[in-house]
Amino acid sequence: MVAVDFDQLTEALAAGTALSGTQLRALAHSRDLIGLGMLAADVRTRLHGGRGTFVRIETIDVTGRPEDAAVEVPAEAGEVRFMGTPVSLEAAVAAVRAVRATTAVPLSGWALDALVHWGGSLAATLGALRAAGLDAVATARLDRLDLEQLRAVADAGLVLQTVTVGVPSDDDVLLDQLEQLRAWQAATGVVRACAPLPVEVSAEQPTTGYDDMRHVALARLVLDNVTHVQAHWTRMGAKLSQSCLLFGANDIDAVPARDAMPHGPRRAILEEVRRNLQAASLDVVERDGAFAERRA
């Protein structure tokens, strides 16, 4: 067990002092999950006050999508997010252009490591998508990310919506990755948010609640130059998303813009998101893909 002086760390953070690598590793190895969570929640409050944000997204899969496919972005969507593998860069560009022509909401798309493999240079790909109207690259995995990719995003005039963690890792490896991300962000400033839970998990041996929450809290403490720490509604579900809010996250990403409400309006996804934010003692704010508040 590692003894940590939480009062001292609280004071240091309140004074705007970044925690050292030694302090962060001591926190990661402490048994005091509540102490860690309280530190992260304090940082979240200093950055965002009592606001807990969420965004509703419309997802468009370009895989096999006809060029003349109808575009209908629901009014509920605060962001349109492209995914899938287009037949060509030109097809992706055409899809972005077609959607851009119908809506003013921010457009994001694809994973950065996938764009690298579309052929041609990453800079050319990003430039073409930006010219077509894309506002942001949707996501990048920390284990597949490098500084050059982030510079290419910046050079294209884009931002990176979310950096995720690829596969589960132990605390020290995660801290190394987060510290690397902090350094890259200092050099580029393009990362808007970090969703610090792994996107690939084993069904037989899922990550634990303690590991997940420790990683959310550590991300909040390390990434003092990344504004938002996120949960992902579709991937995590209500309980895990809300737990992330308790441990330092301030935003819920990827709430579906479309909801057939099979269980009635009280159990609509939107209501469930609001309930979970409120029960986490946060003021509910719906945002768009540029993190601007949406007004009813």
């Binding site: 999950l33 509540i34 899922p206 634990t208 609640g209 303690y210 309980k239 895990l240 737990s243």
Partner: peptide
């Protein structure tokens, strides 16, 4: 009722 993750957090 809470799932394994919140179930484990119960220990804190």
């Amino acid at each position: 009722t809470q799932g394994g993750k919140v179930g484990q957090l119960s220990l804190a």
